[in-house]
Simulated assay, not measured.
Amino acid sequence: MCQKLRWGVLGAGQIAKVFCNALRFSETSELRAVSSTDPQRALELGQFSGISPRIEHSYDSLLRSHDVDAVYIANLNHQHYPWALASLQAGKHTLVEKPITLNEEQLHHLHRVAKQEQRILMEAFMYRCHPQLDHLRNHIEKETIGKINMMNASFGYQAAFNPQNRLFQKVWGGGAIYDVGCYPSSMAIWLSSILTKNDCPQSIKVRRFDVKGRIGPSGVDEEAELCFVLDDGTLIRLQTSIVRELPNQVILEGSHGRIIVKDPWLPSSSCRFADAPLALNTVFSPSELLIEQVEGDKNIFNIERIDVDRDLFTYEIDHFAEIVAQRSPSKIPLQDSLANIQLLEHWLGALHKS
Rank of each mutant, 00 (worst) to 15 (best):
H352E: 10
E223R: 05
H108W: 15
I145M: 07
T101G: 06
P333V: 05
E105Q: 15
L23I: 11
P39V: 01
M150S: 12
V34Y: 01
L10P: 00
V96N: 02
K298I: 10
N77F: 09
F301A: 12
N198T: 14
V34S: 00
P99N: 11
K262T: 10
A86W: 06
W190V: 01
E105F: 13
E56K: 01
S52T: 10
D179P: 07
H57D: 14
I259H: 00
R41A: 11
R24K: 14
L252H: 03
A124Y: 06
H109I: 15
A42N: 06
M122V: 14
I204T: 02
L121Y: 00
H93W: 03
N162R: 13
A114D: 02
R207F: 08
A86P: 07
I73S: 01
C2M: 12
D311M: 06
Q3M: 13
P247Q: 07
W190K: 03
K205E: 15
R327F: 03
E245T: 12
E304G: 03
S26I: 00
E104G: 10
L107P: 02
L252W: 05
G219E: 06
Y72S: 07
Q14S: 12
L235R: 15
C182P: 05
F209D: 06
F301E: 11
V261P: 02
I317P: 00
K170H: 14
E222A: 05
F320G: 01
D231T: 13
V250T: 08
A276C: 13
Q202S: 14
Q239N: 12
S241R: 09
N340P: 07
R327Y: 05
I189S: 04
L136H: 08
K147H: 14
S87Q: 03
L10S: 01
Q202K: 15
I194P: 04
V171A: 14
H256S: 12
P277R: 08
S193N: 07
D221C: 12
H66D: 13
L191H: 03
C129T: 10
A188V: 02
S255K: 09
G46P: 04
E222F: 03
D275M: 15
S185F: 09
S285N: 11
L110R: 05
L62H: 00
F155T: 06
I145C: 03
L312I: 05
L85N: 11
P53D: 01
L31Y: 02
M187C: 10
G219F: 04
L290M: 13
L278D: 06
P217R: 15
H93P: 00
I194F: 06
I51F: 09
R24F: 10
Q106V: 04
I303F: 09
Y157M: 14
S36G: 07
S65W: 01
E105R: 10
G91V: 04
L226P: 00
F168D: 07
N340A: 13
Q14A: 12
A176K: 02
P247S: 07
R207P: 06
D263Y: 11
I51L: 08
S337T: 15
F320C: 04
M126W: 13
I259C: 01
V9W: 02
S154H: 01
V171C: 09
S255D: 12
